[in-house]
Amino acid sequence: MKISINGKTHALTGPQPLSRVIQGLCKNNPYVIVELNGDIIHKDLWQSVQLCEGDRIELVSFVGGG
């Protein structure tokens, strides 16, 4: 199953909860902010959201800036 994360295509073994992908990529980073297909997904819902083919995930966090 193909999805895009931060603009790049990733291949997943199959449908899975969002939380698994985040855990895999960001370990236990408490500052991750997640957007799925343009919608902001609150932390509490990561477990219950199932990913499907073609989903676009954006993982962002704060950095120093002007």
């Binding site: 931060n6 990529l25 960001c26 902010i33 962002v60 966090s61 704060f62 120093g64 002007g66």
Partner: peptide, 9 residues
């Protein structure tokens, strides 16, 4: 001020 960026994975 802080900015928002994609996480470097």
């Amino acid at each position: 001020t802080v900015a928002l960026r994609r996480i470097d994975l």
